[in-house]
Design a protein around this nucleic acid. Structure first.
Lengths: 357, 357
DNA sequence: AATGCAGATGATAGCGCAACCATTGTGCTT
DNA sequence: AAGCACAATGGTTGCGCTATCATCTGCATT
């Protein structure tokens, strides 16, 4: 008697613990027991339902629902080495450009049953390396990363990862794997040509953040003007600060001040800056587009609606996200892709802010 | 000799396989072998370096670097039941309101070494349920979700999950766990009071998407006008469509048309709509604010810079994200939180678009 | 010198699941 | 009627890691 009691005393805490943990993690085995089948059958009901007879499937599903079973993805990933995760690295969450690309990625990945693990690299290759490391530790099945500015070390383990990788936003000479983007330099070049075509002569440049893509746009701007013998470095005003409407206004003011207002057109590397310049010009009573042309970049929605409407460079951001995601999915499903390198193109939306004619 | 050869022949394919797989996953054990310690020591070097002597730590770290070892987070999570993942569910990626909250969340979570798994519920409770299920399958250590519109089933397994959960954006009567937001209804109410105070009489309402928070703003608007005997349901124009500048313009036009222009103020539930209304009003040659007041909501950057500057309701979105993330972290670290329910407040930024005085 | 104790390191087991292969039963072919 | 293919189900094992406990070392304490 005493011994028995004793043993109970020892067992009791365990039992209590177990009871308290009725809210404990429900596992595959619990479901299997509850529905009188083996664990692997439950696994099949979840992952390959077509391989299980209908009666069993229903029976198991009932147990799953009543127990509120939620599969442990870590165990599944470990056992199958399939994570169903796609890693995405973008430089900034506060830039609408990237969030729209992201939307495209999410749309496709969601539909294909992939989770998206998103990291923010803050425009820093070093931080990017750290973040991509984090992504890789989740054994993603694919990766979408921004641009081609990865550190050497990063490129290294990216190559080693042997998973489909798409570098997005810009066209790269030597992509790690796949590449979707457009030619920023050429776009900048074309903008200047358009302005010249409209009869503008002294074309200023306003840039912020100055990431690689912005630099390329600036190079295009420079090239076009140099070709016509009209380049003047004093017409360039930039800041490493993040871009914003406020910064756009400030840069515009400083451009006007430093040039005594001889500028008759401004190419802003994005629409925030352009709106800032436009609003500031209005406050300065400068007549757009008669006395001053303003051209933005990205063609955000406001560009088409602001008065005067803003000329901008339209790029298919959402579509770029969709394309990148789609390429990953195709590779994962071993379907052919047309090309490892996709140029999404762009279009200059010519609006009132640059039409003097 | 022959036997030896024979055995080599048999081993060779294995060897070849192994060689080809030198790019194969490097595991903890590989690192352990390479550095002549046990696996657990390598694990410690990574997770609790202070528990390993400096000499060993350096030695192991060297092996980690040279092999390019990246830990398998799934195995780690499975073994330790710590995922270092926080799940976040927002209704839309294309709405700047959420991306700014997200920025706050990422800032805090990144600094604390947590990954963020983000899902997009498309404003649908059913999709939200599915998505939260997905989140839970990753055994997140905490959850940040939007609003209080979860399905019954969803609330159920959310409660069962026994992890810290913050519902954000709005103030909830009965939160699942924690809650950070502000009073949308009161904000709508205050906006109307402000407009009345500025001498406007016939105050229209423009809304899109009409999610729960927008509805609350509308109720506040309605309440304020009813209290003054000035409510007229014909002054309300809404659409279930997502909101945008374009939609704002359209709704404004239809409001003006249906009321023959007797409206002298418009409360738009967000700044996109308000900008759309403002730009449209300009095109219609309506004088803002003399003949028409326009008030937005969210206080996006453009509100302060557009001409005339736009009155709007400023809310600390970034701060809300930071707060929510911080509460989760505190709970996870068993630190006290001031309150389970945090009102972030709001502020009406009174600008030119509503000042007739 | 015996004891204890803390710090450093290792051996073992198991987290929850799916791959792999085995087994059973069913209906078909010849 | 024998043989076979195939569909449905189950048993065993191991994915890569960490929790737990064990071991070992050196050194202070008495």
């Amino acid at each position: 008697m005493l011994a028995k009691n004793n043993s109970q005393v020892q067992i009791l805490p365990m039992k209590t613990a177990k009871k308290r943990l009725s809210d404990k993690k429900i596992t595959l085995v619990d479901v299997a027991n509850a529905s009188g089948v083996s664990a692997i059958t439950v696994s099949r009901v979840i992952n390959q339902p077509e391989k299980v007879s209908e009666s069993l499937r229903i029976q198991v599903q009932k147990a799953i629902d009543s127990l509120g079973y939620i599969p442990n993805q870590h165990a599944s990933s470990l056992a199958s080495s399939k994570s169903r995760v796609i890693g995405v690295a973008i430089p900034s969450l506060s830039n609408i450009v990237f969030t729209e690309v992201l939307r495209g990625i999410y749309e496709v990945m969601g539909a294909s049953g992939y989770k998206v693990l998103l990291v923010d690299t803050h425009y820093s290759p070093l931080e990017e390396e750290k973040m991509i490391r984090t992504l890789l530790s989740q054994s993603p099945e694919g990766l979408i990363i921004t641009g081609g500015d990865q550190t050497k070390a990063c490129q290294n383990f990216l190559t080693k990862a042997r998973i489909p990788i798409v570098q997005i936003m810009e066209l790269l000479a030597d992509p790690i794997d796949m590449n979707v983007g457009f030619a920023h330099g050429r776009a900048g070049y074309d903008v200047v040509k358009h302005l010249i075509g409209q009869g503008y002569e002294r074309i200023g440049f306003i840039g912020a953040r100055m990431d690689p893509r912005v630099q390329q746009r600036m190079q295009g701007y420079k090239l076009a003007l140099e070709q016509m013998g009209k380049f003047d470095k004093n017409l360039i005003v930039t800041t490493p600060e993040p871009s914003s409407i406020g910064v756009g206004g400030e840069l515009f003011k400083s451009l006007m001040a430093s040039t005594n207002g001889v500028v008759d057109a401004v190419f802003c590397v994005n629409d925030d800056l352009a709106l800032g310049a436009l609003f500031e010009a209005q406050r300065m009573n400068i007549n757009v587009p008669q006395d001053l042309a303003i051209c933005g970049f990205n063609d955000i929605e406001a560009a088409a609606y602001v008065n005067p409407s803003l000329t901008s460079v339209s790029v298919g951001r959402y579509e770029m996200g969709v394309k990148a995601a789609d390429m990953i999915i195709r590779v994962l499903n071993e379907k052919p892709i047309e090309s490892k390198k996709v140029d999404m193109g762009y279009e200059i939306k010519k609006r009132v802010s640059t039409s003097r004619l």
